[in-house]
Every structure is written in C-alpha cells, then in structure tokens.
C-alpha cells in the first residue's frame, strides 16, 4: 500500500509477533503493520489468534512496549 495513506510512525514500535495479511501481500514494512487499517484482521503469532498470550486483543496500538508480552521487531 502506498505509504502516504497513513503516518508510518517509526516512533511507535510494534511487537514482532503481530501479524496481518498485508505483511504477506505488501511486505514487512507495510503501514498496516504499524497503525491499524480499518479493513484488516490482526492476530498474534504466539497464539495464532486474535488475542495474545495475555488474553488481550492483538492490534497494532495494543501490541506496544507497555504490554508484558511485547517483543521488539
């Protein structure tokens, strides 16, 4: 996806386990992986589910350093 569509916020790190289809289609630097795209489904690679190991939702804005299960990319 063209990166102009959203701010590619590199100050907002995202957990390395967060996955979304866009990563496989548009590449690992797709903005969808960093800020939520409204039409994207997300899941955690550790659980392969929409919630992470702590039971919270896995979405870019939640898979942040403040979360206990976070691991940097």
């Amino acid at each position: 996806m063209p990166t102009y569509l959203r701010v590619h916020d590199t100050s907002q790190p995202v957990c390395k386990h967060l996955r979304t289809k866009a990563l496989h289609v548009y590449g690992r630097d797709t903005p969808d992986a960093f800020t939520t795209s409204r039409s994207s489904h997300y899941h955690c690679l550790r659980t392969q589910f929409v919630t992470g190991p702590d039971g919270d939702l896995s979405v870019p804005e939640r898979c942040q350093p403040s979360r206990a299960c976070f691991e940097p990319r």
Partner: peptide
C-alpha cells in the same frame, strides 16, 4: 490507542 492516523 495512542495517537494514530488510521488507514486514511
């Protein structure tokens, strides 16, 4: 959410 741009 912290400040985000969404997808548009």
């Amino acid at each position: 959410e912290r400040s985000t741009e969404g997808d548009e």
